[in-house]
């Protein structure tokens, strides 16, 4: 029996709030967007957290990669490797992204960004255009990777049982200790001594969001070691193979940094003559305050300094503008610096 409370919703109100999109395409608006437009938008709106290549920065979610890792230790769950439906991506980007400025993207912008996320996962070519018309034709790799909760048949028969009360087992051994990992925050007991510090222990791994749980204990020390990896030694003579390898690595940089004759500043400064240059001195580029200060303080981009910076830009120079997560492999660092060394003024 109705109470007659509330009032009828107006069409404008429904249009303003009813934005959800379903896997069958219900709710998608008219529109389209291409990969290259998406790449620009992604760089502008998304890369600060998700990385230029959707590879993720710090603990923010990685959106690309991870194919074939779901049955391994610490699977990497991305739009490409895990998400079953593309509509989820469209819906979430449209309503909740960018973080801190939700619902600011146009429908076409969202189509373009979703197209770029597909591209970053090697699921479409760079000339791909995503639209309302072809949207449901895109099937994500893990679409068939889900089953509906089966605990009723796989678990309840095992766990609905008479519990053992005496002589339940003969021996008991401790097999794992939380204190070995030492990742519990300090000062958590009423007055017990503080446990050791463990911040940053899992910077590489922890799940985005609270999924968290993915932070496998074993991963913690490794990640810490990786961050602390020392810069590789530099050789003076340019090794052609190394330079060639470095040119490939440089593709990660090329979205933001232009090189060669006639290159102009882009998202990042021109890198011609970078090796040996004083930091923060390319004319016409608006550097962050920390980078300007570093240059004024005498920082010169020697191979050693570049190696330290490129391995972990945020730690090397906090609050600088470059939203790149860093090169994790020493061999990549060595190669890209060898390549940069060949670029004249």
């Amino acid at each position: 029996e109705k109470l007659g409370l509330g009032r009828a919703a107006l069409p404008e109100e429904l249009a303003a709030w009813d934005h959800d999109v379903r896997p069958d395409g219900l709710g998608l608006p008219e529109g389209s967007g291409d990969v290259l437009t998406g790449e620009e938008l992604f760089s502008e709106h998304c890369a600060v957290c998700h990385g230029e290549f959707a590879e993720g920065v710090d603990n923010w979610p990685k959106l690309a990669g991870g194919m074939g890792t779901l049955d391994r230790d610490d699977p990497l769950k991305t739009v490409g490797s895990y998400w079953p439906y593309l509509s989820t991506t469209w819906d979430y980007v449209h309503r909740s992204m960018p973080f801190g400025n939700a619902q600011s993207l146009s429908d076409d912008d969202v189509y373009a960004i979703v197209a770029y996320i597909l591209y970053s996962n090697d699921l479409v070519d760079d000339d791909f255009v995503l639209s309302k018309e072809n949207f449901t034709e895109v099937e994500l790799p893990n679409a068939g990777g889900f089953i509906i909760d089966d605990r009723d048949t796989t678990e309840l028969p095992l766990f609905i049982r008479e519990p053992c009360m005496t002589d339940c087992k003969e021996t008991v051994e401790i097999t794992a200790h939380a204190t070995v990992l030492d990742v519990t925050p300090n000062d958590t007991t009423d007055d017990a001594p503080a446990a050791g510090a463990a911040e940053a222990a899992t910077a590489e791994d922890p799940a985005p969001e609270v999924a968290v749980a993915e932070a496998a204990p074993e991963a913690a020390p490794e990640a810490a070691v990786e961050v602390a990896a020392e810069a590789p030694a530099q050789t003076a003579a340019a090794d052609p193979e190394l330079v060639a390898a470095g040119e490939k690595v440089f593709k990660k940089c090329a979205a933001c940094h232009k090189v060669g004759e006639g290159a102009k500043n882009a998202v990042g400064p021109v890198l011609n003559g970078i090796v040996g240059r004083t930091a923060g001195t390319v004319e016409g580029f608006k550097y962050s305050k920390p980078m300007q200060d570093a240059g004024a303080g005498g920082l010169v981009w020697t191979p050693e300094e570049l190696s330290g910076y490129l391995a972990d830009p945020k730690t090397y120079l906090p609050k600088n503008k470059m939203s790149f997560a860093g090169l994790k492999k020493d061999s990549d660092l060595e190669a890209v610096i060898a390549y940069l060394s060949t670029l004249g003024q």
Binding site: D71, S87, Y92, S96, G145, D149
Partner: peptide, 27 residues
């Protein structure tokens, strides 16, 4: 609707790489 919080999150990946969804009840 298969939204983000019920597909990419709050699904339970098993050892073989398949994942349970709609695992709503807390045991």
């Amino acid at each position: 609707w298969e939204q983000r919080e019920e597909t990419s999150k709050y699904t339970d990946t098993l050892a073989d790489g398949t994942s349970r969804k709609w695992t709503w009840v807390m045991d």
